[in-house]
Amino acid sequence: MMHSAQHWLEKIRALPLPERVRLMNVCGGHERSISMAGLRKALPGQIELIPGPGCPVCVCPEQDIYQAIHLALNEDIVLLSFGDMLRVPVNVSKKAIRSLEQAKAAGADVRPIASPLEAVKIARAEPHKTVVFFVAGFETTCAPVAGMIAEGMPDNLLLLMSGRLTWPAVSMLLESEQPGFDALIAPGHVSTVMGSEEWQFVVDKHQIPAAIAGFTPESLLAATYSVLRQLIENRPFLDNCYPEVVKPNGNPKAKALLAQTLAVVDAPWRGIGVIPASGFELKPDYDSHNARLRFPDASSQAREHVGEMPPGCDCARVVLGKIKPLDCRIYGTACTPRTPVGPCMVSDEGACRIWWASGMRKETAQVVPMD
C-alpha cells in the first residue's frame, strides 16, 4: 500500500534533523514536481532541495547549437530538433541569428519534432531531401534514438548527436572539493533505462545517501525521508523508492541498443567544460548517417564566448547546484520565459523556467546563496 504525501511529511517532521541538510535532485522532472507541488514550503526549513544537472537542453554544447543553426541556414537540408532546443540562444551578436527559431523565421526549414519516429517519417516522405536530426537529450532520449538507428534509417536521414549521460556530471560534482549536497535524489526515468545500480557509486565511492524517486509527491517524499534517515543514522545505502518502474538491471533491450549503436565519449557541457565519458556519439558502423562527417563544423573558435553560457547568465552555476535560480543576476529582469537569455529559462526542465512558472520571484523570496 502506497503511503500518502501527508504520511511522509509527518515522518520527516518527526526526524531529529541537523541544522542544515542539502538534498540534490538531479532530474528536471523531479524539480518540476517539487516546485509545482510546493514541497519546499511543506518541508522543514532545515532541508534545502537543490536542483542539479538534469536539464539536457541547459547543458547542450553551445557550439553544437551553432552548428545546427549554420546547417539550417547554409545547407539544403531539413533540420529537425526537439521543441525546447529551438529557442536556445548561442553566443553571437544580437544582430545575428541566435537560435533555431530565428533561423526558421529567416526561411530555414527547421521543424520541431517529439520523437525519433517523426524523423523517420519525414525522411521517408521527402526522400530527395537531406534531413538532419539534431539529437540533444539524456539516456531516456538516446535509447529510442538508438532503437531507430538499429532498425535501419532512411539513407537521407543524418544525425547531429549531442546526447549526454547523467551520472558523470554527478560524479564530477562529488569529486570536486565542494560537492554542495549531503544526499542525492536520483532520477527515475534514467534509472528505468539504465538500472538502479547506475547510482551505486554515490554510496560505495563517496559514502553519500541516495534514493531513486518517481515523480509524484509521495515518491519524492519517500525518497527524501529515506536519505534523511540514512544521514541521521550514518548508514548510507542506495534505496529504490520507485520499484514499480525501476529495476536492478534497468531495461536490458534499451541498454543493448545503446551499446550497439552509440559510443561513449568525452564531451563538453555548456558553461561547464568537458566531462570524461559523458557523451553519446554514433559508432563508426553508422558513419554514413553522421552529420558531423557529412558537413564541415562551422563552430569557429574565434567566436566570442564559444561554448559558454551567454554573458551575464549564471545558468551553469544553477545547473551545478552552486546557486539557486533566484541568485542569478538576470533572473526575472533581462531573462524571463518570454525573453530567455540562458537555456535554464528556455527548457521545461530548466530550473529557472520551473521556478518562474511556479511563481518564484526575487521580491517574494529570500535569496540565500548555496555556496
Rank of each mutant, 00 (worst) to 15 (best):
L158M: 14
T166I: 13
A213T: 01
L157S: 14
G214D: 02
A210R: 01
T216R: 10
G180T: 06
P217V: 00
A146G: 09
M194Q: 11
E233L: 05
S226T: 07
T192W: 15
P217F: 00
A211L: 01
Q178P: 00
L159K: 08
G147N: 14
D155Q: 11
V227F: 03
R229H: 03
T166W: 07
T216H: 04
M148C: 14
N234L: 00
V170A: 12
F215H: 10
G180Q: 13
L221I: 01
L159F: 07
P209D: 05
L160A: 07
S176A: 13
S176L: 05
S162P: 15
L231F: 03
H189R: 00
M153V: 06
A211T: 02
S219K: 03
S191H: 09
L221R: 06
I149E: 12
P209Q: 07
A222P: 00
T216I: 04
E198A: 11
S191D: 12
S219C: 00
R229C: 07
E175K: 13
S176R: 11
G180W: 15
S196G: 12
L221S: 12
A210F: 02
E233A: 05
W167K: 15
D204Q: 14
P187K: 03
Q178M: 11
V227Q: 11
A211H: 02
G152D: 08
S226F: 06
L173R: 13
G188S: 03
A222L: 07
L160I: 09
G195S: 08
V227P: 11
M172N: 12
A150F: 08
S162F: 14
S196D: 15
L174D: 07
M148G: 06
A186M: 09
V193K: 12
L160V: 09
R229Q: 13
N234T: 00
R229L: 02
A146M: 12
G188T: 02
M172K: 14
V227S: 10
H206W: 12
T216S: 12
T216M: 04
D155N: 07
W167L: 15
L220W: 04
S226W: 00
S226A: 14
G195V: 10
L184R: 09
N234S: 10
M194T: 12
L174T: 06
D155P: 11
G180I: 03
T224K: 01
A146T: 05
T216F: 01
G188C: 03
E197M: 02
G147W: 14
L158Q: 15
Q207L: 06
S171Y: 10
Q178K: 15
S219G: 09
D155Y: 00
M161Y: 12
P217K: 01
K205M: 04
M194W: 00
T224C: 08
L159I: 14
G152S: 07
T216Y: 06
G152C: 06
E177W: 00
A186F: 01
A222D: 12
A213Y: 03
L220I: 05
E197S: 11
M161C: 13
G214C: 08
T166S: 15
P187N: 07
